[in-house]
Nucleic acid binder design. Structure first.
Lengths: 212, 212
DNA sequence: GAAGTTCTGGAACGACATGTCAAGAATGCT
DNA sequence: AGCATTCTTGACATGTCGTTCCAGAACTTC
């Protein structure tokens, strides 16, 4: 009973997410948000609360989506674990350029902007831990399958892969083109501690077009 | 003739830089800046112009300093080139934690915040190009000395190292502790295409404490 | 010390920020 | 249709933003 909302909460959430990802927390006004979501400020406040709550909800939804997306990329049988790690790197390289507006990751944006918000901080930490967990499992799967050196430290490799992911995003936003970024991903993949046997099965190992 | 300025332009510039690095462009008000620099708004506007000019000057000064700092780390004879690359990674890992306030790189902040400012954009691109150039020279030096595979693509490796640098910064700001970050740097170093001979001379190659 | 010049701190202003509210519009139920 | 309920819209209060301006302080030169 009562008047039904004139907006689709999911769509509005996504539009708001894109606005925050485009202009950050401090750089986004509630007017911008309302315009992006296609509703008035009053409806906004009624539906989501104030700006900080709104940001937190948006960030949490983004984290949910991102965690499961990466988990989907990284989960699977041991035989394909190494390929999944390559896919992780390639997808990381394409992340920004695949977006129609070249938007970056909201988690990176939150972290770099240095927002002081306990709940958001906690949520982001959780997201990073989970993604790192998915990566670690995948690395261990590749180790079990004999593709990665068994003595290598899976969590450390995962953290490096996380860092490469974040770093490629920054480079992309700084203007590095998609092709160069994919070569960076290839380099990163080549830097993994592949076993000798698996390395010999990979395409050109470390090399590339020699001419710069 | 006339009243002399009551502030040291260099010190004020640095204080303002730290303020921008702490709270970003959109998150920093001119009042904050004036307070951080220890001068009144009138003096600020007289000395630096409006907020956008002020930011540009601060960013340019930061780029100058950063470029030369990295160049100093990376320049030297071929014999120590590989060690200098390691130093680059270790310093990257320590960057945020070495700062008393845990501040990140201003260039990263600018890029991630997505500020639309032509001159600043150009300046940042130049800085990244220059640092990449220093890295590429160092990689090539290491190749000349037989520490890195001669077929490896120096610019691609440099771009990967840049990405790792940016990525470790984000991880540090996200809460990854200093020790873990240094292990990530070690992993990244181990991922370089070392020649077999040089690799055998390095400490434990890819390994680490097996127990997590 | 008087004149001329430059720097300083705070007042002032219009624009815009956030958050609230009330009157009206659109629905379900009886 | 009428009522209760919920959503929407635009106006409003209050504060902060960037920027300008000016009266006075501090210095150099004569």
């Amino acid at each position: 009973m009562g008047r039904p909302p004139g907006f689709d909460r999911t769509k509005v959430t996504q539009a708001i997410e894109r606005q925050f990802r485009r202009t950050g927390y401090a750089g986004t006004s509630v007017d911008d948000i309302a315009k992006a979501g296609g509703l008035g400020r009053g409806s906004l406040y009624a539906a989501f609360g104030d700006k900080s709550k709104l940001y937190l909800q948006t960030l949490a939804a983004y984290c949910d989506r991102t965690e499961t997306a990466w988990a989907a990329v990284l989960e699977g049988p041991d035989e394909t674990a190494l390929e999944r790690l390559r896919a992780y790197l390639v997808k990381s390289a394409r992340f920004v350029h695949d977006d129609p507006d070249g938007l970056g990751c909201m988690v990176t944006g939150f972290v770099v902007e240095g927002i002081n918000h306990d709940q958001a901080n906690e949520r982001v930490r959780l997201a990073l831990t989970r993604i790192e967990g998915s990566l670690t499992e995948c690395v261990q799967a590749a180790q079990r399958h004999g593709d990665l050196e068994p003595e290598a430290d899976a969590p450390e490799i995962s953290q490096l892969l996380m860092a490469v992911n974040r770093g490629m995003e920054v480079m992309a936003k700084a203007g590095l083109d998609a092709a160069a970024l994919e070569r960076v991903a290839d380099q990163a993949f080549a830097g993994l501690p592949l076993t000798a046997q698996t390395r010999s099965q990979q395409a050109p190992p470390v090399v590339a077009d020699a001419a710069s």
